[in-house]
Structures are given as structure tokens and as C-alpha cells.
Design a protein around this nucleic acid. Structure first.
Lengths: 213, 213
DNA sequence: CGGGCCATTGACTTAGGTCAATCTGCGTGG
DNA sequence: CCACGCAGATTGACCTAAGTCAATGGCCCG
């Protein structure tokens, strides 16, 4: 009933509309959800990190593609027994509900970003999000002053698709933040945040960091 | 335990962060969810129509403002007894889960619109969405050929905030569709769709209308 | 050493935002 | 009853952020 599957970076995990045989949770790596218009423009609509869940009780198809951004390992369960499990165990159902509501909040923050933020604000928000995430993972004792080393799990092109920009604009904004001394970019996959305060100001969000709350 | 409340058009139903005493469902009218940046730019992140639900089991505050777009009547329940109800009755919990997943799908479609569609495509998608909705409400026997009379529940400014545009751009795109004979705008609150096929082509979506599926 | 593949940078174009003038109803009070 | 005023809508002229197109650069891997 339970099995592990791995997908190399860049491969498709699920196609839009394909019937779902499994539900799964991400064990390691990063996967992305994306939607595409007829003419090929695409928009990422979600990022799946370890512990995130794929699949929807009571639905057997999804409305977007799921792609492995880095190498990904999933832990898969057959759908039917899983649904039976959900029906008997209320607190599993409740947990799934919470996950869905968290995703919904994240999706709404992203709508504000996509609809109203400038390119600069989008990049700042993206980096700030990664910084907060990595901070969560690390020792959360004292508030680790100012700055963090971030790993970018995606190419410029993928970042652009996530933020509703082009890859050139992403690159230019990285360069701008670097020129201003807010970040450093030692190699294409790494960003060193030199001045987190200034980065957060550049996000355009409320000073108190309402996004995470 | 159950009570009705009404809110005149334009008033706030809930403020972001305010503790939720009630959960509610919309009886009549249209309400909107919106998020605002420090400097006042705002983005609507959802529309609530009759039968939609406000409130989240297991959370007592929301991350956005809820505003009455038209006059709105809500049917409210106190939160604590409602949560107890949800816990004992699995199929209520399941129904809420489905609502959350529907909202999530809608949010993701909107992310594609906000991130990648042109102004023209945004307006076409908006009108097409209203047309599909009103079609659902009406006699759904035969597929009502081509065309429909739509009521706009919002001002140009609110439409702009929904679509991530400015009100001037909304107005210009309405005028463009009118000039092309695709719609007519007899008064500010009404739109007559003259050629639904051409409108749907202008949305940029897949020909088969994947959005609704 | 050579060839992809990303990424960066520059020059140029353009969709949509901004600012401002005018128009259209509609409710209100003289 | 009418004129006034106001809120929303339209339209035009202009500007700019970001997209497009194209050349170049660095890096990893065979």
C-alpha cells in the first residue's frame, strides 16, 4: 500500500487531467504545480516542499501539471485505501483540511504578488520567503541577526514562471539587489542575504511581516 | 445559534486579523475578499456568491478583508457550536473540505490569469466566467446558443482590483469589445454578450473550456 | 578542448499605468 | 420641477516598467 518513487529533476510527475491512482507526500526535493495557456505561457501555481501533500480526497484528477524541479522522492499510497482511512479517522481528515486551508492562504498571498507587486517587490518577496523558510529549518533560538545563505532550488526561468515575470527581468533584479549591496550571488544557485531588513522593506508588505504572522 | 445579518453595499463585513466570532454563509448579494499593500494597492483574492462560506474550522482569524460588494445578507452561526458540529458529523467536514478544494482550484486559475494574461484576456475571462455562471442559474436544458445578458455586481474600479488592472484599462477593454461587436454595454451595470464564441477565443484558454471542466 | 546550457547585459519596443479633461446619470434640495 | 453636484465612467495624451530580441559570458561535463 505504501511505496517510494523518485523522479529526476525536470521530469513530469503528473499531467493535468490524468486520473490519479495515488496520493503522495514529498519526502525530499522540490516539485512545482503549474498551469499553461494554449500558446505556451505558463504560470507556477504552487511549490511542493518536503512534507507537502499531493492529491485530493474526493477528486480523482487535478487541474495542473506537477513537475519535479529538483530530484524528488515521493511516498505514495494507493488512493482507495487512503480515502477509506480518511473517512474513519477524523483527525486525519482535519489535518488534510488544515493543509488545504494553508495552501489557500498561500495562494491568496501569491495572487496579491502576481496582481499588484512590481518586479522588484516580487523578487524581494521570493527571497524573503526562502529566507524565512530556511530560518524555520535552522535553530530558531535567537533571531539570527541579519542575513542568511539561501539555496535556490530552481533556475532563473523557473523563478520567472513562479513570479509572473521573464527570466531576463529576474536576472536584472538580482543584479540590482547585488549592486545595492542587499544580496550577493556567489554562484547561480546561491544567494547570500547581506541586509535582510532592506530586503524586507523592498517586498512592499506590511512592516510587521503579516504574511507569516 | 443561527442568525441573519445584512450589510449595505460598500461596508466591511470583516477586517483582516479580527478574531472570528462567527462562521457564515452568503444568503444573497456578493461579497469580496481582498488584500492590501501598505501603500494602498489592493487585490481581490476571491468573490463570495450566494451559498459560499466564510470562516475556517480550526482558525479564528482570517488574512484578508471581507467587504460587501452589493447589499449582502449572511446567515451566521456561532463558531464554537459550529466546530463541535463539524467534529461529530463527518459528511459536513467532507463538504467543507470540498468547498476548500474548489476555492483552491479557483485561486489557482486566478493566479494564471493574474500572472500571465493580457488585459484583453483578463476581461474576456471575467465576462466568460459571469456568462457561465448565469447560464448555470438559468434553465440548463439546451445550450442557449450564443449570447447572454449579464449583470455586473461591481464597479469598474472593483473589476480592476479583481483582475489586477486599473479602472481605465478595464474601461478601454470594454470599449474595445464593444467596438468589435462582441458585447454591448447598454448601461454601466449591464453587459450583453453578442458573440460568446469570439469572447471565449479572446480568453486565451484552451478551446474546450478547461477551466470549468 | 569544445559544446551546451544558463545567466547576464544591452538596445529597443510596447502594454498598460498615470494624469487629466470630459461625460453621464441620478439623487437632493431650493 | 429643475439645476446642481457628485460618483462613476469614458477617452485622450503621455510615460514607464517590463517584455522582446540579440549578443556575450561563464561553467560544467564529456
Amino acid at each position: 500500500m505504501k511505496s517510494y518513487r523518485t523522479f529526476p529533476a525536470g521530469t513530469e510527475i503528473l499531467w493535468r487531467g490524468e486520473p490519479l491512482e495515488y496520493v503522495a507526500s514529498v519526502v525530499s526535493g522540490v516539485a512545482s504545480l503549474s498551469k499553461t495557456l494554449e500558446d505556451g505561457r505558463t504560470q507556477m501555481v504552487g511549490l511542493l516542499l518536503p512534507s507537502d501533500f499531493i492529491g485530493r480526497p474526493g477528486r480523482n484528477r487535478i487541474e495542473f501539471d506537477v513537475t519535479a524541479t529538483t530530484d524528488v522522492t515521493l511516498c505514495c499510497f494507493a488512493r482507495t485505501p487512503f480515502e477509506a482511512l480518511v473517512l474513519d479517522t477524523p483527525h486525519v481528515a482535519q489535518r488534510l483540511m488544515e493543509l488545504a486551508l494553508d495552501e489557500l492562504d498561500a495562494a491568496r498571498d501569491w495572487m496579491l504578488l502576481l496582481g499588484r507587486k512590481t518586479a522588484r517587490e516580487k523578487i524581494a518577496t521570493f527571497l524573503d520567503m526562502l529566507a524565512r523558510r530556511s530560518q524555520m529549518t535552522m535553530t530558531e533560538g535567537a533571531g539570527m541577526a541579519n542575513g542568511a545563505a539561501l539555496y535556490l532550488p530552481m533556475t532563473r526561468d523557473q523563478i520567472a514562471n513562479y513570479l509572473g515575470l521573464t527570466l531576463e527581468t529576474v536576472s536584472r533584479q538580482f543584479s540590482a539587489f547585488k549592486r545595492e549591496g542587499i544580496i550577493d550571488v556567489p554562484d547561480r544557485r546561491r544567494v547570500l542575504v547581506i541586509n535582510l531588513d532592506r530586503l524586507q522593506i523592498a517586498t512592499g508588505d506590511d512592516a510587521d511581516g503579516g504574511v507569516v504572522a
